[in-house]
Simulated assay, not measured.
Amino acid sequence: MRLVLILVIVALLRPSEALAADCTQPAAPGVDWQRCYMDGRDFTRHDLTGARLRETSFQRARLGEAVLVKVDAYRVRFISAVLAGARLDDGLFADADFTKANLGGASLVGADLRRARFFNASLRGADLSGAKTLGAELLNADLSGARWTDGKTICAEGSLGQCN
């Protein structure tokens, strides 16, 4: 009985993952926007370092030159979003959808991109050094001039769907 009481007290004192995100909070480092709809909004040059963006939708959003370093963006949707020049270093983007997104010149150094979808996306000149890409789908993705995951190989002009 005493053990059950202690466990209940510990559970009540610990922050709960079940708390709802506040989708009305302004863009800032560490913001919690889990399961929010940010479709079509402009976050150009905003700093979202360490933000919680799980399952959030950024369809057609503008995030050019935004800082998305160390974000938790599991299953986020960046469909047709502009992320040109953005920094996505060391972020969790597993199962994310970047279909038709513009990631030209973006930095994805050390990013977890496992099972992410990049159908018809532009990764021209992007830096994928150290990124985890197991299971990532790159159908018709433009990798021209991108730095590949080994940190050394530069993809040839016309590299579509794979780094040549």
Rank of each mutant, 00 (worst) to 15 (best):
G105K: 05
G105R: 08
N120Y: 00
A136F: 13
L138M: 12
N102G: 08
A94W: 14
S107P: 02
S122N: 03
G110M: 08
N120K: 01
A126M: 12
G91K: 06
R115N: 08
N120C: 00
L123R: 08
A96M: 12
A131T: 05
A126Q: 05
G110F: 10
A131Y: 04
L103H: 01
L134P: 12
R114G: 04
D90I: 11
G110A: 04
L138Q: 08
A106Q: 04
G135T: 08
S122A: 05
D89Y: 10
G110W: 10
L88I: 02
G130L: 01
L108Q: 05
T99Y: 00
T99L: 04
D112A: 10
L103D: 00
R115K: 11
G104I: 01
N102H: 07
L134A: 14
L108A: 05
F98W: 07
L139T: 11
L123W: 04
S122T: 09
V109C: 07
D90K: 14
L92S: 13
K100W: 09
F118V: 07
R114L: 00
L88Q: 10
R124G: 01
D89T: 08
T133M: 15
A101C: 03
R117Y: 03
K132E: 13
S129T: 13
D97I: 09
A121I: 02
A136E: 12
D112C: 03
L108F: 13
L92K: 15
R114F: 03
S122V: 06
V109N: 06
G125E: 07
D95N: 15
F119M: 01
T99I: 07
A101Y: 00
L128M: 10
T133Y: 02
D95W: 15
T133K: 01
D97E: 12
D95S: 14
A94M: 14
A121M: 03
A121Q: 02
D127M: 09
A96Q: 09
T133V: 15
L128I: 07
R124Y: 07
D95E: 15
G135A: 10
L103V: 07
V109S: 12
D95Q: 15
